[in-house]
């Protein structure tokens, strides 16, 4: 399965994060389609967790809404399968270690693979703990996506060397959420990444405007946006799909317009 690599081939990639089940599964389905139809190159589907320690207030709230609405891991698998029926771009889960571990990592990987998932991001599984999950997911052709943070410094090369799918570069200290300014030297991080791996790297955390997205994509291979999309869903509820579509179009256009070698 090379869907993830393909997503970065044509141009810089725009990656959209959507919490599954916020405000309900029907809306998520429509929102995902709207994002795909408007140029998203990869979709991160957030499986809600009760205590998401890497998330800021916006995604935390979305997780709560989704869980209160009765979203479960099994329902997420079912929706993924349905989406995969017509969506060709890569779909990646983002959730927390306990959601996978508690389900049974093997059983989780089997069901995720059957539903058509290409990768998984577990923000509370760093390099030191990844083998426990990677050894299972790799057997099912699912890439465990590694993250690099502004504090990673001497760890970047080590992480990049073993990275799969794409590398998630965290733009700023702290948790997810929009930021007025990103001050980390992403270009310097990308340089170390590129010296150690061929897989693409995309920047997330804090990006909300087309200008920011273009700037981040210029010094990496793509931009990831979560909280800004979740805010739109929070504002428009069940009617969010066209609004998300419009926003994704502005972001994807900005990212796709960045010259391939920035």
């Amino acid at each position: 399965m090379n869907r993830i690599a393909d997503a970065f081939n044509k141009h810089k990639a725009f990656i959209a994060f959507i919490t599954v089940g916020d405000p309900d599964l029907e809306t998520t389905e429509k929102v995902v389609h709207a994002a795909v139809d408007n140029g998203a190159d990869l979709i991160e589907l957030g499986i809600p967790f009760s205590d998401p320690t890497a998330e800021g207030p916006v995604i935390m709230h979305a997780d709560n809404v989704a869980l209160s609405a009765g979203t479960t891991t099994d329902k997420v698998f079912a929706l993924t399968e349905k989406l995969r029926g017509s969506i060709k771009i890569p779909l990646v889960y983002m959730t927390y270690a306990n959601v996978v571990f508690s389900y049974g990592t093997e059983k989780f990987a089997e069901k995720a693979a059957a539903a058509g998932i290409d990768g998984i991001i577990l923000p509370d599984v760093p390099y030191e703990e990844k083998d426990e999950f990677d050894s299972v997911f790799s057997r099912y052709g699912i890439d465990l996506i590694s993250m690099i943070a502004p504090t990673s410094e001497n760890r970047i090369a080590m992480i990049a060397k073993e990275a799969k799918g794409f590398l998630y570069m965290v733009s700023s200290l702290g948790v997810t959420g929009t930021r007025a300014k990103i001050t980390t030297d992403i270009g310097a991080m990308t340089k170390v990444v590129k010296a150690n791996t061929k897989i693409p790297c995309a920047v997330g955390f804090g990006i909300s405007t087309p200008e920011q997205a273009a700037k981040m994509a210029a010094c990496s291979d793509g931009a990831i946006v979560g909280s800004a999309i979740i805010k739109i869903i929070d504002q428009y509820g069940k009617d969010a799909a066209p609004h998300v579509g419009e926003y994704v179009k502005s972001m994807a256009d900005a990212v796709h317009g960045v010259a391939a070698e920035g």
């Binding site: 320690t53 890497a54 270690a97 923000p123 509370d124 599984v125 760093p126 390099y127 030191e128 703990e129 590694s146 993250m147 690099i148 943070a149 502004p150 504090t151 990673s152 410094e153 001497n154 760890r155 992480i159 965290v170 200290l173 702290g174």
Partner: peptide
């Protein structure tokens, strides 16, 4: 036990 934390905190 272990160290199941975000990468941001690993060096700390």
């Amino acid at each position: 036990g272990g160290q199941y934390i975000p990468e941001t905190l690993m060096n700390a």
